[in-house]
Nucleic acid binder design. Structure first.
Length: 577
DNA sequence: GCCGTTTTCGGCCCGACTGTTTTCAGTCG
């Protein structure tokens, strides 16, 4: 069965090829929108295509054509039209469009006029001066292409939000020394707290544009200045991260902040609504349009912009044009969970396995950070590389915990836990009688991640049904930029977790953030509480909680939806008996 | 290709910057 991701990628590829071929841009966009709708769906589109294909067109951005193609894809595993398109435009040609400044039109000219079909051939063509000879091209374009090839050749890796955050903080401090800056804000996917970031968008109100741009040019690690105009400047850092600066008038700051925070899809929807009301929104403000005359209505703050559209100020994390407009219309915009709401952390390691801090150090660090309860969850024996615990060592650790508990105030709860592996052949890595003694049992898959969808799903279902397993840790196993999620029937996992009152983890490690935002939303829809855990292997890792909470917010989770915002006593009532 | 309290046809967000141009197309966000 094809996953949503696989199907979404196929429609994305269709869009890429059609765009390259100069198709109607709205048709291209329709494919992209359809792809996105499928990618963001919290349930299996393939399953729907099999059981109830008529339901497909009920989803936004999926019409008759994409629904039919989805059914064909699920039934036959292929799409005749795509096979034909792939012959016309090989994937290596599409790779050329990853070069900054080279879009479908120019790429098509290069392919048609010179027969250049790979990045390697493109490099040669540039070096031989063949590109600048093409009509509409010149010396500078050729150089830009040549410069852009190495970056495009790298597999597309976006920077982790957590890493971008370091740069963002440094950039803010660097620019804030500029005396002419009155306001400064970081927008874009960084502000929306996406798990990975393509570039940083900086927005500034300043009386001296030149001073701000000069200052940006002095930011440590600047590799190249990509563009510099009257109000806009782009640079690229040695780390490959691109930074876009916009300088706007004060009365436009809110409009610009709204505009550059995006997402693009959220803004397209907003602009469409404005238009229906005879308004126009751009980065300079909200305007009334009458007889070709534009009157400025507002835009100093984001609130002014949304107020004029009679919409709430959406938290940036929700601005993805998923459900937020629908929620706003119903007056049911969720009050998103906040870092301060978190009371406990139920996934962490010590020096007993692969952690770098002792039990005592972890407890002290947790208390310093104001946590009210934690569970020590070292690895089980199967994880030999981390010196996982067998029953004897585990019980010895629990004895230590008993002793340590004597020294702790009543207001702090130290729980006996374990991160128990789900074995390759199925079943848990520790016997039931051992698990029964624990306060908290995480079950997780570390081995056999390449097994079939059916095998992995069965392993997870068995763990969920196990009466001693309280929570499934990092449920999809992905590592951002490194390893895709394992093949798993998440619909089945959600249904089983709902039925057996097994909780699901949102692992806050910035490389994991697993569950992702859409699955968090799906879990919420099933009434399954999410536990946000840091999986700390060192005391500093407790700070990952912030990343986990931001991801939970993107999933639309409220305080009530996150289990470890409750007291440990309250939480126990959410767990299986 | 998708969609509908203007519409089942005719729209589909909007502007900055660059390079190659003699007035604008392409690209990007």
């Amino acid at each position: 069965m094809l996953t949503n991701l696989q199907i979404a990628d196929i429609f994305e590829e269709m869009a890429d090829i059609l765009e390259f071929q100069g198709e109607n841009p709205f048709r291209v966009r329709a494919y992209r929108n359809g792809s996105r709708a499928i990618r963001d769906l919290g349930e299996s589109i393939a399953a729907i295509a099999v059981s109830d294909p008529a339901r497909l067109v009920e989803f936004d951005d999926i019409g008759k054509t994409i629904a039919e193609k989805t059914v064909t894809l699920v039934e036959t595993g292929e799409l005749p039209q795509l096979i034909k398109l792939r012959k016309e435009v090989p994937a290596t040609v599409l790779a050329m469009m990853r070069i900054q400044g080279l879009g479908p039109k120019k790429a098509a000219v290069i392919f048609k006029e010179l027969g250049v079909a790979t990045l390697e051939e493109l490099k040669t063509a540039c070096e031989e001066g063949k590109i600048q000879a093409l009509k509409g091209f010149g010396k500078k374009t050729e150089q830009m292409i040549l410069d852009g090839i190495p970056l495009a050749a790298e597999a597309e890796t976006r920077i982790l939000w957590h890493d971008a955050d370091q740069t963002a903080q440094a950039l803010r401090e660097h620019l804030e020394t500029c005396p002419s800056i009155e306001k400064l804000e970081l927008a874009g996917s960084y502000r929306r707290r996406k798990e990975t970031i393509g570039d940083l968008d900086v927005l500034v109100v300043s009386s001296d544009v030149k001073q701000v741009m000069d200052r940006l040019g002095e930011f440590p690690g600047v590799a190249t200045v990509l563009a510099r105009g009257e109000t806009k400047m782009s640079i690229r850092l040695d780390t490959k991260l691109q930074i876009d600066l916009r300088v706007v008038p004060a009365r436009s700051f809110g409009a610009a902040l709204q505009y550059f925070t995006g997402s693009k899809e959220h803004n397209v929807e907003l602009r469409g609504r404005a238009k229906q009301q005879g308004l126009k929104i751009n980065e300079y403000g909200v305007f009334r349009v009458e007889d070709g005359e534009e009157t400025y209505l507002g835009g100093q703050t984001e609130k002014e912009v949304y107020d004029l559209l009679e919409l709430p100020v959406f938290p940036p994390e929700l601005r993805e044009n998923r459900r937020e407009y629908e929620w706003a219309a119903q007056g049911k915009l969720p009050e998103l969970v906040e870092l301060d709401d978190i009371r406990g952390d139920l996934h962490m390691h010590t020096t007993e396995t692969d952690g770098s801090a002792t039990l005592e150090e972890m407890v002290a660090a947790a208390r310093e950070r104001g946590l009210k309860y934690i569970a020590i969850t070292d690895h089980s024996q199967r994880v030999s590389m981390a010196r996982g615990l067998d029953p004897v060592r585990l019980r010895a650790q629990w004895k230590q915990i008993d002793a340590l508990r004597e020294t702790l105030p009543k207001s702090f709860t130290l729980l006996k836990g374990i991160e128990c592996d789900i074995l390759e052949k199925g079943g848990m890595d520790l016997p039931d009688d051992v698990l029964a003694e624990a306060d908290w049992v995480l079950a997780s898959i570390h081995y056999g991640q390449k097994q079939s969808r059916q095998q992995i799903t069965e392993r997870l279902l068995e763990a969920i049904e196990n009466p001693h397993v309280t929570c499934i840790a990092h449920p999809t196993g992905r590592l951002l930029n490194q390893r895709p999620p394992y093949e798993v029937d998440l619909d089945a996992v959600l249904l089983a977790a709902q039925k057996h009152h097994t909780l699901l983890e949102l692992n806050a490690n910035p490389r994991r953030l697993d569950l992702n935002d859409t699955y968090c939303a799906a879990a919420k829809a099933h009434g399954i509480p999410i536990v946000v855990n840091t999986d700390a292997h060192a005391v500093e890792h407790f700070d990952f909680m912030r990343c986990g909470v931001l991801q939970a917010r993107r999933g639309g989770l409220t305080k009530a939806d996150v289990a470890n915002t409750h007291t440990w006593l309250q939480m126990k009532k959410m767990m299986k008996k």
